[in-house]
Design a protein around this nucleic acid. Structure first.
Lengths: 173, 173
DNA sequence: CAACTCATGTAACCAGTTACATGATTCA
DNA sequence: TGAATCATGTAACTGGTTACATGAGTTG
């Protein structure tokens, strides 16, 4: 369960409300981990119950500000250093490739060209993002830049693969 | 819900039992889509109820063989040509990168070197698989080869990224 | 004062995992 | 005859999505 750790991680940079955290999921974390509103509020409740977080302030409009406890910080550190990320082996894109023999060759090429176009679009967006962020030498900047670079390399690699794959199918005699 | 379409896709190559399909998930589909035993049997029941599949034979030991109906074939074709794969934006690996500023620089480098090693291992396994399969010019071979190539490119790209990232962190003054 | 944003909470549902339960057939 | 394999089914649980519900403060 990584949502728990995403929340602990975000709160390691300082206290925030559920609403604040939700914005972070939509903005900075959008390409890395998604979370819904109901999920965030529910998990904040659980993390408070088990002592990883505490409500540090209650503001207007029912706003509650959460702060990481020592226990929460320990849990975050443990997750970062003592556990290995589990890779999810589930790609809808690739699953379809497996069954492309069920459609005409032209339809298969169209599918792969669609993937190529989507990857190209994503790549452009990430490159634009890279240009627009004022990178400095702070830790956040360094690691944010590294995460972004991952996305750039991944979408570029996927674009090249899709282009190659479409050619394989088209040229196949 | 792609498990449904994975089952339709597998059955498009001919009738099979739940048990047979489970083997396919463990072998050929392992790197693309995973499914558990309970999931497969439950979904086969649902697909039979809604007419996408039919029980074509009942063998010994309670074995039931399922066959794709016209309705099922139509659904598979529709999924392949009329719907776009949705990309899951959820990477535990990358989520951790986002919070690496919470651990020492040495721990961060160790984490990234670990990713590099894991990607390298995966790459070797996929390359070994590629060498061991007797590829021919059948549709299954063509598309299987394309799917495998995706994995090879992805793990190679991830390895390079992790190596680069570790260097960024180590050399950062 | 209407529209918008801030802000939280919960219920119902869907997909996927783990675990339990059972029994038939094959093979050494 | 005991172990392995074939074969299916279901219950309990976890993580994630969609939808509903409510209300306080801000801004034009």
């Amino acid at each position: 369960m990584s949502l728990r750790h995403a929340l602990l991680g975000l709160l390691s940079h300082g206290p925030a409300s559920g609403y604040d955290l939700l914005k972070q999921f939509e903005l900075s974390l959008a390409n890395v981990w998604s979370a819904t509103q109901s999920q965030v509020y529910t998990e904040l409740g659980r993390l408070t119950d088990n002592g990883h977080l505490e409500v540090s302030d209650e503001g207007s409009r029912g706003r509650k500000e959460y702060r990481l406890t020592d226990s929460g910080r320990t849990e975050l550190h443990h997750w970062l250093t003592q556990t290995r990320p589990k890779t999810v082996r589930r790609s809808e894109t690739l699953l379809r490739v497996f069954f492309l023999d069920q459609v005409s060759r032209q339809e298969a090429v169209e599918y792969l060209k669609g993937i190529e176009a989507d990857s190209e679009t994503e790549l452009s967006q990430l490159e634009e993002l890279e240009r627009s962020v004022p990178w400095d030498s702070s830790p956040l900047s360094i690691y944010g830049r590294i995460a972004l670079e991952y996305g750039i390399r991944a979408s570029s690699s996927q674009r090249d693969w899709a282009e190659w794959a479409a050619r394989q199918v088209r040229d196949h005699t």
